[in-house]
Write a protein that binds this DNA or RNA. Sequence first.
DNA 1: CACGCTGATTGACAAAAGTCAATTCATCGC
DNA 2: GCGATGAATTGACTTTTGTCAATCAGCGTG
Lengths: 321, 321
Amino acid sequence: MAYRPADQIIHKAAWLYYTHGLRQDEVAQRLNISRASVALYLRKAREAGIVNISTSTHLFSGERLARQMEDTFGLETVWLVEEDALSPSPASEIPTLAANVFLEMVENDNRVCVAWGRTVYDIADAMSYADREGVTVVEMCGNLGSPYAYRPDQCTMEIARRLNAKGLNFYAPLVLSTQELARALREEPVIREQLDGIGACDLALFTVGALDADSHVIKCGALGLDELKTLKTMGATGVIAGQIITADGTLLDCDYNRRMISADFDAIRAIPKRLMVVQEDEKFEPLNAAIAGRFFTHLVTTSSMAAKLLKHHAVSEPTPA
Amino acid sequence: MAYRPADQIIHKAAWLYYTHGLRQDEVAQRLNISRASVALYLRKAREAGIVNISTSTHLFSGERLARQMEDTFGLETVWLVEEDALSPSPASEIPTLAANVFLEMVENDNRVCVAWGRTVYDIADAMSYADREGVTVVEMCGNLGSPYAYRPDQCTMEIARRLNAKGLNFYAPLVLSTQELARALREEPVIREQLDGIGACDLALFTVGALDADSHVIKCGALGLDELKTLKTMGATGVIAGQIITADGTLLDCDYNRRMISADFDAIRAIPKRLMVVQEDEKFEPLNAAIAGRFFTHLVTTSSMAAKLLKHHAVSEPTPA
DNA sequence: CACGCTGATTGACAAAAGTCAATTCATCGC
DNA sequence: GCGATGAATTGACTTTTGTCAATCAGCGTG
């Protein structure tokens, strides 16, 4: 490479400025040039890679992953827990973190909307009591009578209790036996009101459901195993507020979904802050679908899940440059 | 590691500012904090090594003199500091440059071996935090209990800290009172292992010591003044990793050297990249000896020293045309 | 050798970053 | 509860940096 005096002075400026921490005017003085030139040289030095500014990869590797997640998927904030490390009890880490995150997100006089499920119940359980005022907690979708401790209305009520908030339950089943009945029920004023109120929320807390033999919808009897198999061949990938979505994050066009009393997807997406929480590694596909559907803006999950998602993203649509 | 919200926001601010190039007020807006806080966080991030800013050392190896050094003495790369020129504080320039050069040379998963001394300590001090992984830093020779801040183990540990590396100390004194004891100690498994590990390093950082009244070995009490005088008449010229060498770069055959716990010269020379750093002009003779012994492959020193070395070389063995 | 062209350099101004005293917030002991 | 204490945060101000139109220096050309 040819020797160019221009390079030399750029190097010197960069060295004095970045390594020695001199100010631009000091550098200018030392090199007998104007400060404007120094500014110009420094920009050139940065562009030419003579100075390298990078954010650490090993310190806070989890943080870095989180930032990458935010960038890649256009999310507001991502929180990750390191499961490999010496976490006291990895299982409880996510709900605890999620509960804290959620509490930080709730503001006075907010209207928050929560879905239900084991994860949400765990979060409610881990949530400390907060001194909020004027908060209303509403259910995101219809109820499912189930034998579990995490009955839908209990999730809502427990969270409301912790937030010193008013809890509003959904007085309807999640799934009805016919489409007609569902349609009729949705037009009932009390139900209509609840459904319409979802889009007016400030904050949502929910998770995405998987579709295996031991996942929620099956266990609660809302869906049969054979029915599930059929739906899967149709592209069923995950469950958002009771409703089945495909891999690209859209509502699966099926009878089951039409028999549902639940939040409209556009209403959900109208909520400014939507916190998604995923604990289980097996929920990779569903979560991917939820990302595609732009269902959430904030995410709490494990770093291994984050790594998987990023890897998958890189493979499926390699970034230019 | 525990979840600390403070870390998260600092990291996020650093990420948005340095990686995304947002302005401080944009970052502040995005994170809902004041711009003053952003400025504070960014400073903390820099101090904590979350962001690394490094400048190329190319400038210092781009000179004709440096090239000549490389050619004449068969060195890989030579970096020279002009003591008269742009040095903000000439004394600090060499350690700063050496630290930067060293950082550029260290690669992930490297095993690096460092000697100790004031120069090495200064380098450690000037070194910024680096984003390396899997690096191990080992001591090159035994320790000398000294009253100074630059205690051997501190050099190693400080460098390890800056590199996010594991530091391995040598659990032995540098000099023992008898040859027998030294020999016995060298056969101790834990010591043997450390000694053997030196040849397996990828990179070494060290300097050559002088032999005057106020040089290291004397000050630390490892060697008496009268003892020194005797050794000098025997040809003692410099100190490499504690061991005394003659002008032709070979180990001086003396009792002192035989009482030493330190790296074998062949082991040192087995390390592919060996960075020698010399600040003091008085180290001309020792450095010459170190060159003769082919102890190093990379060199950081002053250009006046380089000039002297080249001149001396030309006189002692004039090159044809 | 005057001319115009190109790219480097600068002065002056605008924008951004740094700083610090004042304030708010949280935590603790009484 | 309640005031004291110390840390975190911020608003207002200062300093530093970025920008850009204007100027200048070098240089090939008619």
